[in-house]
Amino acid sequence: MGSHSEIIEAGAPPEPHHMDSTTAYHAAKLGMWLFLATEILLFAALFAAFALYHWWYFDEFHHASEKLDWRLGALNTAVLLFSSYTAAVAVYAAQIGDNKRIVKNFGISVACGLIFLIIKAVEYSGKYAKGYFPGTDLWSDPNFAQSYKNYFGIYYCLTGLHALHVIIGMSVMIWVITKARKNRFSGRYYTPVELGALYWHLVDLIWIYLFPLLYLIG
């Protein structure tokens, strides 16, 4: 069990005691893909609930989705798509060992994540002002439930859970940035950059499904 406190040569992969570094890279990647599968299943239940109720309450859901501002949703889609692009650039930068470019591109992705959250907050506060928000008087009014069924309930669950994932993804990228600033990555070792970017792509992908479902076809 070799001690890890020795000074690691910049850009060299860590040497775990129980496998070689190539195996470690492939193992980490497989692990990440499995984790992404669990994330998709986490959302799957909510998508299933949405599909079921959309089918049952077609009119109410249609009516309710018109209360959302599709322009804000579209803007957020663009922001996330761009951030996914910069995340992919960061992986390329890591493969050629350009730590500065990792910092720059992941930095942009994190900033985009922040913009996304701010726009989301604007949307939420707009709803709150109109009373379509848990805890308001309108929310507990039976007539409100009759006219929109549980559309807004599902809306907040889906977007709230997604926003949580945005925050997690941003934290992961910030952690990778701190490592990249110390020139930790090289063409021989860039696993965290790749996995972080993979996670961010998932966050983006889920939003790409959420946007049309919630805002457009409603």
């Binding site: 986490l42 959302f43 799957a44 909510l46 848990p134 805890g135 929310w139 069924k149 907040y156 859970l161």
Partner: peptide, 24 residues
């Protein structure tokens, strides 16, 4: 790996249901 996330989100929905009254 594949089944547990579904019950995970279901139980979270139960919590949200109780706290916020989302009505799923």
């Amino acid at each position: 790996t594949l089944a547990t996330p579904v019950v995970g989100i279901t139980l979270i929905l139960l919590i949200v249901e109780r706290v916020l009254g989302i009505g799923i």
